[in-house]
Design a binder for these strands. Structure first.
Lengths: 192, 192
DNA sequence: TCGCTTGTCTAGCGCTGCTAGGATCGAATC
DNA sequence: GATTCGATCCTAGCAGCGCTAGACAAGCGA
């Protein structure tokens, strides 16, 4: 029995190694550089081993996305915990969101740009994703304003942040003015 | 002399055919299906012919993007021309933006999601892209509010629309509530 | 010790973007 | 009208991609 347990542990450990290595490689050189061959070489196993853990590259991206969602939710909660003032809270939330996207571009891509085979905005959405949205909702719901559904408001605020994050990283928006954009978004969208 | 002119005309015609075919194929089956082989087959030339017009696939995407930018600018101007009321204008602008993104997903991707090798937000940005931004600025600049730079306001509003457009299409946001999102964005962001 | 399951690897398929080098065709010259 | 020559296009191929079939070895239970 204990032999099987050891094997299961080792297998789980190797799966973590795959995800961590994929993430590392993606952050270093972009997702295009994350090929199954390179990934296999880095974990010092042959290519087919990857397919005994994941159905394909898509699922590996999905695993990185789930890991990232958990971290992102934690980062946003940590940023909003320090104050009770709604204005400050929402601004801190927005900054921590954009900061996470800028510091972890590959993870952000896995979450919101690439196809990781994950379900969004429905029943079978994985828990980490629901929780990340919940982290947004916790701070944004209270500034939605009268007659506006908190969920809808959160979606709109999120979409605005997502637009700023992606357009900035794709060099469609100059990065210098990010702070002023955050100020504008918070001042206009949030009802204090 | 006239022989050369005819050849030049035919060459330009073939280039248009390449771009139009790439766009058509991308809208039908997504950009992943736009391979150089399939594209070559559809225009009834061999693969290397593509490379006598464009440096590579990236430049073909860029050409589709430029074409799309011109159309998008025209669509937005047509939508805002019908009224002088700022609120109505901005709402019409937002709807026409999202409508264009939804109706031409491949073109929208070429513009804002994929790498078409184009410069953005700088001196050497191609004219169609500058003009598309100008079309946004024309309606949004007047509702930026006191003390807010019209360009910055336009960028933020654009980013919000971009976020809604991309998250909706990537199934991160349920599509039903788009109209309510537009209303919320216009009501909150624009200073009337 | 033997048989068998489990796990891993080698090799290969069909596809990708891209390119080198040869063939062909048509315009210009004698 | 025949010939030369340059432009134009195609065949064939390279390296790399995601993914998988089938051979093989290691280690377990009998």
């Amino acid at each position: 029995m204990s032999v099987q347990e050891r094997k299961q542990r080792e297998r789980a450990e190797r799966e973590r190694l795959i995800v961590a290595t994929a993430r590392e490689l993606a952050e270093q050189q972009g997702w295009d550089a994350v090929t199954t061959r390179r990934l296999a070489e880095r974990i010092e196993y042959s290519q087919p081993v990857l397919y005994s853990h994941f159905r394909g590259k898509r699922e590996i991206i999905g695993a990185v996305a789930l890991e990232g969602a958990t971290e992102m939710a934690a980062a946003m909660r940590a940023a909003t915990r320090t104050t009770d003032d709604p204005r400050t809270r929402v601004a801190a939330l927005a900054r921590s969101y954009l900061d996470f996207a800028a510091r972890n571009p590959a993870v952000y891509d896995a979450l919101f740009q690439l196809d990781g085979g994950l379900a969004f905005a429905q029943e079978e959405t994985p828990e980490p994703l629901k929780d990340a949205f919940a982290a947004l909702l916790e701070s944004l719901g209270e500034v939605a304003g009268d007659g506006v559904h908190p969920g809808l408001f959160t979606e709109v605020f999120w979409a605005a942040l997502h637009g700023v994050a992606t357009l900035t990283r794709a060099r469609r928006l100059p990065p210098e003015d990010t702070e002023r954009r955050v100020e504008l978004l918070v001042d206009r969208l949030a009802v204090l």
